[in-house]
C-alpha cells in the first residue's frame, strides 16, 4: 500500500512535469493548471530539502559528539567540526553584525557571517580548488604514457593541447611554410577542440540525454524494484 501510494505520487508529479513541456504557455485552462503545478514542484522540493537538512545536521553532530565522548581516533578533528558548526549556526541565526529581523539579509557582506564567508570560506575554497593544478600534473605524468594505443592517443592529444595553449605557440612554428601552417600547435589544438572533441562531446551529450530519459521512464512507469525500499 505504502509503495503503491509513493509510486502514484511519483508518476503523477513526473507526468505533470513532462506534460508541461508540451503544453502552450497560457494562463488559464488545463495548460495553465499544469504549468502552475510545474512551477510549484521545485519549491516543494526545496521545502522538503530544508527539513532533510535537519536530519543531516543531527546525524553530523550525533556522530561527532559520539566520537568525542568515546575518545575515538582523531577525535580532536570532531571538536573542530562541532565548534565550527555551532559558531556559524549561532552567528547566522542571530544575524550578528547585519540587518536583524526576518527580512534582514543573511548574506549581508558586512555581517559576521558575511565576513566568515569572505575571510574563511572563500580562501579555503580557493585553496582546495588550486590543488587541482597539482593533482592534474601527477595524473598526467602517470597516465599519458606510450604503453598502449589508447594512452598514446591521450599523450599525443594532451601534448598538442598543452603546447597549443602556450602564449607563444604561434611563434614556435612560424618558420613553417604557408601550406603547412595548419601544423602549428595553436591551430592544431583549436582544431582538436573544435572537431574531434566536439564530435565526442555531442555523442556523449546525446547518449547521456537518452540515458536520462530511459532511467526516468523506468521510475515513472513503475518498472523499478529498488525505488521504494527494495522489495516489489
Amino acid at each position: 500500500m505504502k509503495r503503491n501510494l509513493a509510486q502514484v505520487v511519483l508518476s503523477t508529479v513526473a507526468l505533470l512535469i513532462v506534460l508541461s513541456a508540451f503544453l502552450p504557455d497560457t494562463d488559464g485552462g488545463f495548460s495553465g493548471i499544469v504549468k502552475s503545478a510545474d512551477s510549484y514542484f521545485p519549491i516543494w522540493f526545496s521545502i522538503i530539502a530544508v527539513f532533510a537538512f535537519v536530519l543531516g545536521a543531527s546525524s553530523l553532530i550525533g556522530s561527532h559528539v559520539r566520537k568525542i565522548k568515546d575518545r575515538e581516533t582523531d577525535w580532536q578533528y570532531s571538536v573542530v567540526t562541532v565548534l565550527s558548526f555551532a559558531i556559524v549556526l549561532i552567528v547566522g541565526l542571530a544575524k550578528l553584525g547585519g540587518a536583524s529581523g526576518l527580512e534582514g539579509d543573511v548574506s549581508d557582506p558586512a555581517s559576521v557571517l558575511g565576513r566568515i564567508f569572505s575571510s574563511v570560506l572563500s580562501p579555503l575554497h580557493a585553496t582546495l580548488f588550486s590543488l587541482l593544478a597539482f593533482y592534474m600534473a601527477s595524473a598526467a605524468f602517470r597516465s599519458f604514457r606510450i604503453r598502449s594505443l589508447e594512452t598514446t592517443v591521450l599523450l599525443v592529444s594532451a601534448s598538442i593541447i598543452i603546447i597549443g595553449r602556450l602564449p607563444f605557440a604561434s611563434k614556435l612554428f612560424s618558420f613553417l611554410p604557408d601550406a603547412l601552417q595548419w601544423l602549428r600547435p595553436d591551430k592544431l589544438s583549436l582544431w582538436m577542440l573544435l572537431v574531434p572533441n566536439t564530435a565526442g562531446q555531442r555523442a556523449v551529450l546525446i547518449t547521456v540525454s537518452l540515458g536520462v530519459i530511459a532511467v526516468a521512464l523506468k521510475y515513472i512507469l513503475g518498472m523499478s524494484r529498488d525505488m521504494f525500499g527494495g522489495q516489489k
Binding site: 547521456v208 536520462v212 530519459i213 530511459a214 532511467v215 523506468k218 518498472m223 523499478s224 524494484r225 529498488d226
Partner: peptide, 28 residues
C-alpha cells in the same frame, strides 16, 4: 556517459532494468 546508466541496470539483472536498456538502445 550512458554506460554508467546501463551498468546499473546490467548489474541489477532485473528484467525491468534490462527493459530500460532496450529502451535506451531504441532511443539511440
Amino acid at each position: 556517459g550512458e554506460e554508467f546508466f546501463a551498468a546499473s541496470a546490467m548489474l541489477s539483472g532485473n528484467q525491468e532494468d534490462i527493459a530500460m536498456l532496450q529502451g535506451l538502445d531504441a532511443g539511440k
